[in-house]
Simulated assay, not measured.
Amino acid sequence: MFVVAVIALVVAIWPRSQDATSEQVAPDPSVANVTDAPVPASQLAQARAQAKVADCPTSGLAQGVSSVLRGVSAPCLATGAAYDVGAGTAGKPLLINMWAVWCLPCRRELPVLQDYAKRAGDSVTVLTVHAVDGAKNPFLVLKFLTEIGVTLPTVLDTDARIAAALSAPKVFPSTILVRPDGTVAKVLPQVFENTDAIAAAVETNLGVRT
């Protein structure tokens, strides 16, 4: 329940987008101190064990020469180890979801993404990326995911390199669809309410029926 309290505190002081239909949230750097507070290693290990977040994907396929994620690394939430995002996701259609613990619409959308990942199977790689604001506190991210029952592979964008590579908007949640060659097919700054909507976006922009 302390996670709910922290999120409520952050959301209470977070400026919301004026677009009522999107319900998206824009970050405020002044809140970073709330979400980036460090925790002991023992607590972090326990949180990882409880969360059971999936390890970051490894496709084993060659990267496209034009891949926007080539050379981009970030911590994998499941292990804390550096993860080569471009190499790990190469050669397959990719859905990246940019989110954050302080984003209430993200809390609603992430379970839908998990359902979609099960539906898509091996056809589409689904990877979530926690935004830079709050990414330095994996403990809070793990507790948040545990609370909502989401185990999707997650990367922490601690230096905002992933967002920069994808030209991701600074509103959350946002979904970026990436072709197997690593080029961006579509940036979708919206909240997906069901798996059919995600599947339609994937088919339209990546040509994959799921």
Rank of each mutant, 00 (worst) to 15 (best):
V68S: 06
A117H: 11
T146R: 05
D159Y: 03
V155T: 05
A78C: 11
V150T: 10
A165Y: 06
S66I: 12
Q63Y: 00
P75T: 15
C103Q: 01
A168M: 08
G86D: 02
C106D: 02
K186S: 11
K136M: 06
S59K: 00
T183Y: 14
I162C: 12
D55C: 09
A87S: 13
L142M: 10
P57H: 06
P173T: 07
V184E: 05
L113I: 06
T146F: 05
A81E: 12
L142N: 04
G91V: 00
C76D: 07
G91K: 00
A131Q: 13
V171L: 14
A62M: 03
D159T: 14
A165K: 06
P138S: 12
V65K: 14
L113D: 06
L127E: 08
A74W: 09
V65I: 13
P153K: 08
K52D: 12
S167M: 14
D55F: 09
K52E: 10
L77Q: 10
L140D: 01
P169L: 12
T146G: 05
L113N: 11
V141T: 12
D55P: 05
A185Y: 14
V101A: 03
A54H: 12
T175M: 14
A164L: 13
N137M: 11
M98P: 07
D55I: 05
D157C: 02
H130R: 02
R119V: 06
V72A: 10
Y83K: 13
S167I: 13
G134W: 06
D157E: 03
L95P: 05
R161P: 10
K52R: 15
R119Y: 04
N137R: 12
E109H: 00
L113Q: 08
A100R: 01
I148C: 06
R108I: 15
L177C: 09
D159I: 00
V124Q: 14
S174D: 04
T158W: 11
G88Y: 00
F139M: 06
L127Q: 05
D133S: 11
L156T: 00
T89Y: 01
I162Y: 03
V132W: 11
G88H: 05
A74G: 14
G64K: 04
R107Y: 11
V112W: 13
L77R: 03
L142A: 11
L104S: 13
V141K: 01
A74D: 12
I162N: 05
S66K: 15
G182R: 02
V150G: 07
Q63V: 01
K92P: 09
T154I: 07
N137W: 15
L156Y: 00
